[in-house]
Write a protein that binds this DNA or RNA. Structure first.
Lengths: 358, 358
DNA sequence: CTGAAAGCGCTTACAG
DNA sequence: CTGAAAGCGCTTACAG
């Protein structure tokens, strides 16, 4: 079923069929157009995009590389990318890299061969640096979600500031010993969140005790273990800040299994605001990231680049900065012995607001 | 950067380049092959798959239509599809239909134009019936995840039996009044799970009270509301079976907010075994579905069809049946007043095993 | 307003 | 062992 079948059926040339298909305003005699439309309908004809793309040098397809769609942080980002793409007639190819160099490379080759118009790279890992140079050299547009190693267009989140705000919230409640469960330390995201923690500890004069630091790998189990280990430190922390929600969920389970009430005996803060955490009991205080918007914005940046093709050098790569927001829920409260540092009235107010970062 | 650039660089014809690229065993003089390889390397050449696919009539691309990747049931299925696809050199295009006829149609047109070799249709909805006929007519292979309206190759789950087993588990614990929170009743999945509930209620002589039935829409909020409403029935159920985990998570939150201890005052069973539920406290008793395997099996069926191209009619469409498994965790226990129906020793044993269904 | 023809980047008989 | 040429299904100047 090709365009020439349609042409035959309608008794016109393929050029005419192509015109009624693609050029709404091209002058075609109304009754000719009508006949062509009828033929298309009758044959249930779908133009072969392969042939079209080959000629037009655009596939209207983009690649999205993420570590793992099964990680609950990514589905919403993906939806954002996908919705905006689909609204503009683009299609998305998914790649789960597992942050594995081998897999990443294979996917990149595939995307290149499929002639994608652009790629969105999320979840970091050092492999992306060389990859993005390759894409760029071959004329494929690149957008990062997160802080890229070099100057690429990107969608950014104030990871450090948000982490500092989260720890500040605990300090305002009267906590002095705040445990930290970090993510994979190779990732800029982890580094930034740790930096925010450190900064806030210094700023509020909290206990600067390296026995309060743990590194997880962003999943529930690592959070469970890290929390269990933190709780055996003496004196134990009265609050724990985890660098993502999944680890915080693990920490919540660990607290429960250790017989500690949250927030009465231990306060808990996560990061990401993945959908389930507001349904935990207690619901989790966390830093909400606009995951859907991050995906949507990344696709928006790509679209912008497609249009600006050959627009000439502007002032540096486009960067979209999206706000994070501390969502205070019931997993945080004053430490067990509040008499040492009763929160002042002004501090208490700041607890219940929803600081926007930045 | 095309194959003729490589040919020029290596001082051979494009035919030769094509041969070293695609025909490992085609006789090419070793030093010629060497020169071609060098040229490819030097130019970082990637063959344009568009041109290749146009000729070969295969894009090595498949479409995956799911309701919503942000629904935690689908990421694992997607991973299964994606991993198997990628292992065999196939690429996956994602489509979030939101079970919306308009969107589904748009996606189907897109997939058809992109000349995908096959599609995997998951999550049901009536739109797929016409869609799959269209695909088939145009030579695109179709595989369903779930029970298709007509005879298509599919990956199946014993929804009814598993639901019956889950309710049977509650009956064995001594429950007589078991509330049911169903999913969208238009879906075969929901219908099957409800049928299992009904069958088990009859089989174990449980209260057959339609005031114990609620319909949700598979998300946490609807589960919360349905549970809240069920708890106001008099007498209230001593256990609730929700047709999926997200609704069960909502029900757990509702129980908590109503001051009911789980499982002491109310037992709760979900369905799906999405990753987070084992980290809830109490961890949720649920029916585990092999989500990853379901995706992997679906892609496997597709691959099988690609190979069996023109193999001639076998005996009906291929169907892969995957087992479900009741995972008994701490959210289920005997009802508050066990004296009425103390579980027997044999029943208690059945509680702690992990029945495999079928 | 319409059509004939070139060409996008490949693969593969066919001929040598 | 290697190359010239046809052709996959389209789009678009160009000519009429």
């Amino acid at each position: 079923m090709t365009i020439s079948d349609v042409a035959t059926e309608a008794g016109v040339s393929v050029a005419t069929v192509s015109r009624v298909l693609n050029k709404a305003d091209y002058p075609v005699r109304p009754e000719t157009r009508e006949r062509v439309l009828k033929a298309i309908e009758k044959l249930d004809f779908h133009p072969n995009e392969l042939a079209r793309s080959l000629l037009l040098k655009s596939t209207r397809t983009v690649g999205l590389a993420i570590p793992d769609i099964a990680n609950p942080y990514y589905p919403l980002i993906s939806r954002g990318v996908e919705d905006v793409a689909s609204q503009h007639g683009y299609t998305v190819i998914f790649c789960n890299t597992d942050r594995d160099a081998e897999k990443s490379k294979r996917y990149i080759d595939t995307l290149l061969q499929k002639q994608v118009d652009g790629v969105i790279l999320a979840g970091g890992g050092t492999d992306f640096t060389r990859a993005s140079e390759r894409f760029a050299r071959l004329g494929t547009h690149v957008v990062f979600i997160g802080r890229p190693a070099h100057a690429w267009p990107s969608v950014r989140i104030p990871n450090a500031d948000a982490a500092a705000t989260a720890v500040g919230h605990l300090a305002a409640l009267g906590h002095r010993r705040v445990g930290f469960i970090g993510g994979l330390s190779a990732l800029t995201t982890s580094q930034d969140r740790f930096e925010g923690y450190t900064r806030s500890v210094a700023e509020h004069g909290l206990d600067d005790d390296e026995r309060l630091l743990r590194e997880g790998d962003f999943d529930e189990q690592s959070g469970y273990r890290a929390a269990a280990s933190l709780l055996s430190v003496s004196p134990p922390p009265t609050a724990i800040f985890a660098a993502n929600d999944r680890m915080a969920v693990g920490a919540l389970a660990a607290s429960h299994d250790h017989g500690l009430g949250v927030p009465d005996e231990l306060s808990l803060v996560g990061f990401d605001d993945i959908p389930v955490v507001s349904y935990l009991r207690p619901p989790l205080t966390t830093v909400a990231l606009p995951a859907y918007d991050m995906g949507a914005a990344a696709m928006g940046l790509l679209l912008q680049q497609f249009e600006g093709e050959g627009a000439g050098g502007s002032d540096g790569p486009a960067v979209v900065r999206l706000p994070a927001r501390l969502r205070v829920r019931a997993s945080t409260g004053p430490p067990p012995s509040t008499d040492r540092h009763p929160p002042t009235e002004s501090k208490r107010r700041s607890i219940h607001g929803e600081p926007r970062i930045p």
